[in-house]
């Protein structure tokens, strides 16, 4: 696959590089990992196979090999040889086809999966691109014009081809509710301030990338200070720096940070957090850990069911 236009920020991502955070390697990985897994399901890959993630503006690329592709996530008006194609279906590609995306009309991250995966070496167990430290993915960086992405084991066709279609599509609303669990440093804020955080609207600013989403709204005031002795961070942590404007830490976050985290978004809602565009309004709804873990178990079962509808059996390797 030859890149004719690289888009804005197009990187190879899988579910992330785990086991190396103690050394300071951020896990990185797909921001909307659910859309990523669904794209893989459509083309018969393992759910965790590496895909191409495109932010806000997609690529233009020419294929040199027959394969099956699927596009999920943000709506970037995909076209093949000038003709519109849909998100959420398997598409056959013949050599010479040109796939072209535009700017997003809804959502932030769009995913392109190819049957058999991209031919990208595993670095420390993952194909994800660590942009800040140039590790993994395609030469540790975002795609550039002229890059040639090889396909690992492309297949020109798949069984039950006409059935390879998602039966539900994501909705990109301008008003988003994300569920979150208070803490780990909720004790640094008064009950009134916590209650305020879980009721006020925040808007998504332009300062939004793979590292974090900066929000704007009524400042969150700590009891004394929001500085802490640096501790570890997770995807979805909502940190409160000194100005009181919260930041959601995303896939490319630093592994450690020195600001209090008032709450943490539940895993099941991270894909929707990742798809928020500047100008969106977000509110946080408080849930308990038990509720969040029940929701996650349901989400997992529901994805596995969707995968089986497309591919008959769910691969064992994805624990």
């Amino acid at each position: 696959m030859e890149i004719l236009h690289p888009g804005l920020l197009s990187t190879i991502q899988d579910l992330g590089r785990f086991g190396y955070q103690a050394s300071g390697f951020a896990p990185t990985g797909a921001s909307d990992f659910l859309s990523m897994k669904r794209a893989n399901a459509l083309v018969g890959n393992d759910p965790g196979e590496a895909v191409l993630e495109m932010m806000l503006l997609g690529i233009t690329a020419k294929f040199h090999t027959a394969c099956v592709i699927a596009i999920t996530g943000a709506d970037m008006t995909p076209k093949i040889n000038g003709f519109a194609v849909e998100n959420g279906v398997a598409i056959r590609i013949t050599p010479g086809d040109v796939l072209e995306f535009s700017g997003t009309r809804g959502g932030t991250c769009c995913y392109l999966a190819v049957s058999g995966g991209f031919d990208i070496p595993l670095v420390m167990g993952s194909r994800s691109t660590g942009l800040r430290f140039a590790v993994g993915g395609f030469n540790g960086r975002k795609l550039k014009m002229g890059d040639q992405l090889k396909l690992r084991a492309p297949v020109p066709d798949l069984p039950n081809f006409q059935c390879r279609r998602l039966t539900s599509m994501p909705v990109f609303s301008k008003h988003v509710v994300l569920r979150a669990i208070a803490g780990p440093q909720d004790f640094m804020f008064s009950d009134t301030e916590i209650a305020g955080f879980f009721s006020r609207p925040y808007s998504v600013t332009n300062a939004t990338d793979r590292m974090g989403i900066r929000l704007e709204g009524e400042p969150i005031v700590p009891k004394v200070t929001s500085d802490i002795i640096s501790d570890g961070t997770v995807f979805g942590a909502i940190q409160v720096p000194s100005g009181g404007q919260p930041i959601i830490l995303m896939a490319d976050r630093q592994t450690t940070g020195g600001y209090a985290k008032i709450a943490t978004i539940i895993t099941a809602d991270l894909p929707r957090a990742a798809q928020m565009t500047p100008g969106c309004t977000v509110r946080f709804m408080r849930v308990t850990i038990d509720q969040a873990q029940d929701i996650l178990a349901l989400e997992k079962a529901s994805f596995e069911e969707e995968y089986r509808l497309l591919n008959a059996t769910y691969p064992k390797s994805d624990a």
């Binding site: 190396y20 002795i229 640096s230 501790d231 570890g232 997770v234 592994t255 873990q293 997992k300």
Partner: peptide
């Protein structure tokens, strides 16, 4: 247990709640 991050005074333990609950 998927990953750990040791820091000055705390150990962050990342886990898969579908394997082990809180």
């Amino acid at each position: 247990i998927a990953d750990v991050i040791p820091t000055f005074c705390a150990l962050l333990i990342c886990y898969d709640p579908c394997v082990i609950r809180f």
